[in-house]
């Protein structure tokens, strides 16, 4: 514990000064590796309940994660981080118990994600059982849409547009960038973090409290970028590219004093600003695109 605090204190000092960070780099790396390995020993059966990935292959040297504070996250590390964030988010709000709905969203989502060019991750999609109107993306391809938002959708192209925006956050690694910036500072405040079954304590220390990172939001330019990139993913998948704009139009028309959108507006620019920014980028570039909106196949949630 003392060592941990000392290491983190050094890391904070070095973080604030670029020159000092260079000198302390190696010492810091060793210290963090030691810390992370220690943390790992307390969680030997971390992935025991995970059937998806074979245990020996997914084994990661925790030291790598320490190094990731300075370098790039590997796809495995990214998945580990995303899995922890997704598991925490699901602790706040469960999934809708509707196999057909969830399967439908995964089939649509994976098809759109195939147009993103990222083949090194496995995509997961889920509809969250809350009236709140929002959608979330976590690193490693974990994407969630709330029931409140899903129920406002009119066709598959709109679903594809919403999912494409979130997929873009993942492929552009927006959350990882935020995480990297705040991880050292966040870790200091997280010396005593919750312990929960199957939870990845090492990653938890990096991401902060629960799924707080989902409430922190991104820079507004990251949101505009995800709209701009997402609309193209949906169009490449063969959908009518106006699905996402139609959803933004719908949200723009909602009453402002609506508790269902308070978190959305805390973490995203207003839909009118998003439409305006998207309009500047799209202009006439999508005029020739002829996509499908598939209202007949859209799975309606009661």
């Amino acid at each position: 514990m003392k060592l941990k605090l000392m290491v983190l204190a050094i890391s904070l000092v070095s973080f604030s000064g670029a020159a000092a960070a260079f000198d302390f780099g190696k010492l810091l790396e060793e210290g963090i590796n030691q810390e992370l390995n220690k943390g790992r020993q307390t969680q030997p059966a971390r992935d025991a309940s995970q059937s998806a990935a074979p245990q020996p292959k997914s084994k990661i040297d925790a030291g790598q994660l320490g190094f990731a504070l300075f370098g790039d996250y590997s796809p495995e590390e990214e998945t580990r981080i995303g899995r922890q964030i997704a598991g925490n988010l699901l602790g706040a709000v469960p999934l809708v118990r509707d196999d057909k709905l969830q399967r439908y969203v995964n089939l649509v989502g994976d098809w759109v994600a195939q147009q993103s060019g990222r083949k090194d991750i496995t995509w997961h999609f889920g509809v969250l059982d809350t009236e709140d109107i929002n959608a979330f993306a976590a690193p490693g391809g974990y994407i969630f849409v709330t029931k409140g938002l899903y129920q406002r959708l009119n066709n598959e192209a709109e679903l594809a547009g919403v999912l494409a925006h979130e997929i873009a956050h993942v492929t552009l690694k927006h959350h990882l960038k935020v995480l990297k910036q705040s991880s050292l500072i966040g870790a200091l405040g997280q010396a005593a973090s919750h312990k929960a079954k199957d939870s990845d304590q090492v990653v938890q220390n990096l991401i902060g409290n629960g799924a707080e990172i989902m409430a922190r939001g991104l820079d507004k330019n990251a949101e505009f970028e995800a709209d701009r990139v997402g609309i193209v993913f949906a169009a490449r998948a063969g959908y009518d590219p106006w699905g996402l704009p139609d959803v933004l139009q719908d949200l723009a028309g909602l009453p402002a004093k609506d508790s269902r959108t308070s978190l959305l507006y805390k973490t995203h620019p207003h839909p009118a600003d998003r439409l305006a920014a998207l309009g500047e980028a799209v202009d006439g570039h999508l005029d020739a695109v002829q996509g499908k909106d598939l209202p007949g196949r859209f799975y309606h949630l009661r």
Binding site: S49, Q50, S51, A52, R83, Q84, A86, G87, N88, L89, L90, G91, A92, V93, P94, L95, D99, Q102, R103, V105, N106, H124, F125, G126, T130, E131, D132, I133, N134, Y142, T146, G148, H194, A196, K197, D198, S199, Q204, N209, G210, A211, E212, M214, A215, S259, R260, T261, S262, L263, K266
Partner: peptide, 23 residues
Amino acid sequence: GLNDEDLKQARFNGAELAKLNTW
């Protein structure tokens, strides 16, 4: 709606995550 506190207090739910994988 969902708020910061809900998310901050959230505890890892391995059972829900396993459910997610099935779809």
